[in-house]
Amino acid sequence: MTVLASVSLATFLVASLAATQFRSQPLPPSNRVARDEALRRSVTQLEDQNRALKARVQSLQRAVKTGEDESARRSSAAQELKAQVDDQRTIAGLTALHGPGLTLLLHDGVDPNDAGDRSLGWTVHYQDLQDIVDLLWANGAEAVAVNGQRIVPSSSFHYAGVNILVNNGSRISGPYTVTALGDPSALAGGVGDPDQLAELKSRNRIYGLGLSWVKATRTSVPSYDSTFLVKYAQPVS
């Protein structure tokens, strides 16, 4: 029994070492690894900073709102302006909303591992999200959010390498959930129209890229987690 246990232990250790070696071989030299780790640490630190800055902006927004509310209580002129500001904030996406609408789900399909197919058609691209959001606006959406990020007048989707970014450096990754408030039937009708999102739907068939939607009697979108910086455009006096 002792021999059996010793042999078992020895083979276990040898196999572990072999597996470690097998997995470690493709790794680059240590200075490269250290450099990569430093880069990734920078991203983590910048994302932490991004979250902290957004929290500070939100806190200041609350403080400004409190000051405006107090001003409105003291002056009828300020009260009138404050009511207009509140309306504009709602239009701009600075207020959370709820109501009926549509929830659309999108996720990567299956890599065909075909050397002749370099289209990356099985992955979700930022343009796909952009097309979906545009289609929802075109079908009467009153508010839209993607993975909890409210789409506002200054929103843009873009790539940073393999990452999809929206709204002040917010990195979003699949699966993607697009939420829209509006007439559920009109929104679903727009998305279901065979002439719309035709390319995305063909990739759904070819690569199994996930695309589905469901009407909702009640759904919600969060408020924009930042504010607007206008530096160049000035009102025409």
Binding site: D36, L39, R40, S42, V43, T44, L46, E47, Q49, N50, L53, K54, R56, V57, L60, Q61, A63, V64, Y159, A160, G161, V162, N163, L165, N168, G169, R171, S226, T227, F228, L229
Partner: peptide
């Protein structure tokens, strides 16, 4: 992040720096 190539990471750092600068400006204005 470990699965991402260095170019993606570098672009991400660039975008995050830009976004954070804008947030700093927004914070100062507010």
């Amino acid at each position: 992040l470990a699965a991402q190539d260095d170019t993606s990471i570098a672009l991400l750092i660039n975008d995050l720096n830009k976004a954070n600068n804008q947030l700093l400006q927004q914070g100062a204005d507010l």
